[in-house]
Structure formats: C-alpha cells, structure tokens
Amino acid sequence: MKAGVVAYGTYIPRFRIRAEEIARVWGENPENIRSGLGVFQKSIPDIDEDTATISVEAAREAIERSGIDPERIGAIFVGSESHPYAVKPTATIVGDALGCGNFFHAADFEFACKAGTAGIQTCLGMVKSRMIEFGLAIGADTSQSAPGDPLEYSASAGGAAFIIGDKPIAEIESTLSFTSDTPDFWRREGQPYPSHGGRFTGTPAYFRHVISAARKIMEENGYKAEDFDYAVFHQPNGKFPVRAARMLGFRKEQIEQGLVVRMVGNTYSGSSILGFSAVLDIAKPGEKVLLVSFGSGAGSDAFIFNITDRIESYPRKPAVWDKINQGVHVDYSTYLKLRKKIKMK
C-alpha cells in the first residue's frame, strides 16, 4: 500500500519583526545577528492567535484544497511545544473546529521542534495498518523565548498540517528516526521560557541527530544526495540547515526553496514542515524530496517523499512563500504586547 501526504495546508500569522529591531533594543549589532544567525525577520502571532488557531487555519486549508470530508479523518495529532493548555488537548479543539464528528482518535504531541513530523509518522502507521482512512498531523507553535535571549531573534509562529492517506500527492517511500537523551534545550514545567545549552545545541544535538538520521535513510534506501531534487532540514536558524546540507553533500539549489527560516524565523514544530510545504508548492511529479526534522532532547525524523502525478491537480495557491512575503512589521514594544510579555495586573 502506497501512502503519504494527500493534502497539506499552512498558516503564518501576519505580523513580522525585523532582527534589527530586536537588536536595537538589546544593544546588539544587527549585522552580527543577520550574518551570525541567518535570520532576518520572524513571524509573530496576533493577540488572538495561538497554537490551536494556527492549527485550525492550516488544517482548514488542507481540507479545503483536497475536498476531503472531515468526518473521514480518523486521527488528529497536534505537535507543539506551545499548546494553549498544559493539560487539555489542542487536538480536540481542532477536531471540533473542523467538524470531524466525534469518532476520531486525538492526541497532542510534544517533542520540541519535531512534534509535527512525529505526528506524520504516527498517522502513516495508522493508515498503513488500515486503522484509519485519513490521519491529520499538524505541527504548529507560537514559540516562546525570554526577552534578551538570542532565541528571541528566531522563535516565531506558524504551522503546517498534513492529511495522510493513500492516493498521495507525495508518497512516503521511507521514514525512520534517530533518538537519544540529549538535553540541549528544554523547558521545565511551569516555566514561561525555555533554556538551552548554548553552543551545545550544535554538534552533539542538531548535527549529530540530523546527519545520523539523514545518512541512515539514504544508506538504507540506496540514495545519494544527488538523487534528491530537494532536501529540507530543520531550521532553527539560517546557518545550521545550510551546514548540515553541505555535510551531507547537498547543493545550495536543492535546499534553497525549503529554507524559509531567514524570512519567517523558527516556527518550531512547524519549522521543517513549513519548509517542506514550500517545496510541495513547486514540486513536480517524479521528484524526490528528503525531509529531516530535529527536536531537542533529542531526535530526528527522516522521510523520503516521491512526488506523484496527483500533485498537478492539487491547488497550491497562495504558496508558502506568498504568505511569508506578506506581513505587517511591528516594533519591539508592540511585539512584547502581542506576545503578552508585559506583566499586567
């Protein structure tokens, strides 16, 4: 049975803040940020947006574009590290908003930035075992960052939703995960902002997991970098995915389309799959795509997708890049208000 992505949809909030604006407030040199981090601006959720609303909007786009009856969706997984409730699922909100009826499986995932791809793998298993006809996997975040923390330049908001089933537009040829207990980035219960290990997040965390997962899936399936038309890696900043691609032997042209982080920031659970969606926006039948996510803590999910003929009849406008290139820029104080970082009574 061939299964994979039968529909996808994305959502990016309309507000943006430039790296220079954040740097101005904290007395940093904006040029160092742009070149050092490779993030020029990031998206910010509106005051009335959160992971649930982003999830619903992304999923509605997938449903609208595919015409799939929501009641045929048998499972919903929302992956996020910013679920609106600590206890009480986001997935039930999404299910009711989409009109999925009541007979569906629902759960929330959290695995730092890879909770969205974890949902795709779970849906794939349920579809292939014929437990369900369609599964909905969403990765969405309104990610947190402490004021003044370097994370503040990248932690952004957005999400992507994938309906997994047979008759895919992008068949999943293979998937695997590489996982280890690596505390590179975490947020303890009750804490408003995450903490991280600084440079420790690089080699032992991001690169070890992403490279290991990518090498393994290519090796197992007998592919080399040049066999892929596109590759998308988790993009916490503009540097890491570029370096990972180079380490694996990918050319700039293979990763450019999916490299959205410079202009939208790190949408955490939405990050790699927003990049993947940008690739799907232009992918042609017969093309092959490598996707490797990364979630701190730590793990990477790797996928090989084969684009099918069905993609040609799938509506793909407005495209992810269209959404990224829109937006209203705000200043730092508005950003603080929108992110509710001002202590109020």
């Binding site: 959160d50 649930a52 908003a97």
Partner: peptide, 20 residues
C-alpha cells in the same frame, strides 16, 4: 472567516475560541 481566540477566563481559566 478565521478561527481565533475571543477571550480567556484569566490565566488559569478556559480559552474561548470562535469565528472572526
């Protein structure tokens, strides 16, 4: 239409979502 948050019952209360 857009799915949005209307308001919440304080920091520890439920969140009221709806259509805007």
């Amino acid at each position: 239409k857009a799915f949005r948050k209307y308001f919440e019952d304080g920091e520890d209360g439920i969140i009221y979502y709806g259509t805007k």
